[in-house]
């Protein structure tokens, strides 16, 4: 399981569309060998087919596809957008924080979602994610959560 490790975090990416945001967050997982390239394409297709339901809180998107679309290891990357992007969510737009989820079919899937919820269920943590300037701040944030 790889959860928001240094190479999976990119702050202030200059993307201009939902597709580009999903691809950039997904490519962080591809570069670390955690998902296949086709998984990123499946995430984009799921967005086109099912809409922006994965914008599951104000400013937060959690794009993902199915384990069989090419996940090698349960994983989550984080992309903070330099300029918020509208995904078409009536209530939660615009998106500022993108977490790409490599959804595995193992027990680690549940475990990694619990970690993500421990982080995002607390509005104080979301505020810190919006404001952090370096990865070291992410490390201390992750050190303080318990799932």
């Amino acid at each position: 399981m790889k959860f928001l490790e240094k190479n999976l975090v990119e702050l202030d990416a200059a993307v201009t569309s939902p597709d580009e945001a999903i691809q950039t967050a997904g490519n962080l997982l591809v570069e670390e060998g955690l998902v296949e390239e086709q998984y990123v394409e499946a995430m984009v297709q799921s967005y086109h087919k099912n809409g922006p339901y994965f914008v599951l809180a104000p400013q937060i998107a959690l794009p993902h596809a199915r384990p069989e679309d090419g996940v090698k290891e349960a994983s989550v990357s984080f992309l903070r957008l330099m300029h918020p992007v509208r995904f078409g969510s009536a209530v939660n737009d615009p998106v500022h924080l993108v977490f790409a989820l490599g959804a595995s079919s193992s027990d680690e899937h549940l475990e990694i979602l619990q970690k993500l919820m421990a982080l995002l269920n607390n509005p104080e943590n979301v505020k810190k994610l919006m404001e952090m300037t370096a990865y070291s701040e992410m490390e201390s944030l992750l050190g303080g959560i318990h799932s």
Partner: peptide, 15 residues
Amino acid sequence: VCGLGQGTSLILRMN
């Protein structure tokens, strides 16, 4: 319920 039944709906279910 979510689009794929994999991630988003599982988060909702746990909460």
